[in-house]
Design a protein around this nucleic acid. Sequence first.
DNA 1: ACTAAAAACTGGTCTGACCAGAACGTACAT
DNA 2: ATGTACGTTCTGGTCAGACCAGTTTTTAGT
Lengths: 234, 234
Amino acid sequence: MLMKHTVSTKEQLCRYLKQKILLGDIIPDQALLSQRQLAALTGLARSTVREVIQQLELEGLIKTVPGGRSICQNMMLDHIEMPLEGVGDNLDFQLQVLEARAFLEGEAAYFAALRATDQQLHDIAEEFKRMQLRSKGLSTLDKAKADLRFHMMIAESSHHVLITSFSQLFYNRYFNAIYGVLNNTLIKFGRYPDGIRMQHEQIYHALQKRDAQKARKAAREHILFTRKLLEGAD
Amino acid sequence: MLMKHTVSTKEQLCRYLKQKILLGDIIPDQALLSQRQLAALTGLARSTVREVIQQLELEGLIKTVPGGRSICQNMMLDHIEMPLEGVGDNLDFQLQVLEARAFLEGEAAYFAALRATDQQLHDIAEEFKRMQLRSKGLSTLDKAKADLRFHMMIAESSHHVLITSFSQLFYNRYFNAIYGVLNNTLIKFGRYPDGIRMQHEQIYHALQKRDAQKARKAAREHILFTRKLLEGAD
DNA sequence: ACTAAAAACTGGTCTGACCAGAACGTACAT
DNA sequence: ATGTACGTTCTGGTCAGACCAGTTTTTAGT
């Protein structure tokens, strides 16, 4: 029995550093260990450590200065912790969030249909079935989380750096707004409107058939449908 | 007299490859020169070439397979060359594009106000002035390009990897749609509506004063204004 | 205690080497 | 001629050790 994807030491270092930064163990403006120290620590060659460092730099997590150490930046932190400027609960803002989300979901579904691994497709199928089964007995918050997890799995399956990153950023930041939308629709209908369940199904089936354009269309319409609900609810 | 930022050979190679890929000199599934060949060609060390390659890979332009060559992917190209599914010119599609764009522009302006370097702010000021001066004597296409350049500079000044990347992706893909919007408004009004000029000015001033929230608001409203124009033009 | 020289770092680049896996060619068997 | 097995050559990934041009820290001299 052998692992198909043994996690390389390089990958481990990468995750380790990202985690440290994202969880706040290393805070902005704080210096990282030097490349040589990291190399000694991990047993990797410095050139390999450099590649990890460069990756983090390209992702905006750290900044390097020749002669000085690599220091943490974490531009993502700005987003996650941003207080949403007090507009988190108003309707206009929620509508705007859904506008952007429609685009994002569409692209995610499109690429997911094209590039998801069979394993991912299988995982999505599982999650979808779970979603259907338990849809009756959950709190609004749990439903929101389930809904988001479903869409996040799709985003990840797109294997598209930009889409995945943007989705993460997006959901981290706007979860409350999205949750608010779901809450509103639930309050109005007492349950998920039938449309939504059917739309989820359409997205799901388009993905399983790897029909990219249909997946995009379904995902987009799904969000825009939610948007219409919210618009008509004022 | 010395250059402040002499463009390193490394940077040159990076731009060269990006250009080749984005302009279609290297098409998807086509193999790049090997790292050793590129090293020999540029005089760089292979380790340095590798860092360039890794960067392109992280940006989704190429894919590397151990043992095989690095092959072009250019996920952007999918967008640029995609026939837009036959809806490229219809109204609904343009509206959708503007929806997503409103969100993106807002975020870009917000972060640009916070993080643009003085140099970038200066460059934006220059571009803005140029835009004002020559706004009378340009073709629609040139105006569209100028408009896009202005917004792209803002996106770049956000120093936010995701926003910058997403903007590039976005504009590459939807330039035609955006151009269509501009064309429509120009046809309708014979010139840019006054609102747009004023809105550009508001964005510009918010940036110069580094008022992030105002910048976001102005940028968002600018796009949503264009959207309304288009909506009312059917 | 303050300053200036010097030593000890840092990231960036280079060289040259080895490995495992992919690609390709060649020679052999059909 | 066709097809298949094999071996060479090539690829990307990793490694080790070196130098440079800067920064930072220490040290020595005032």
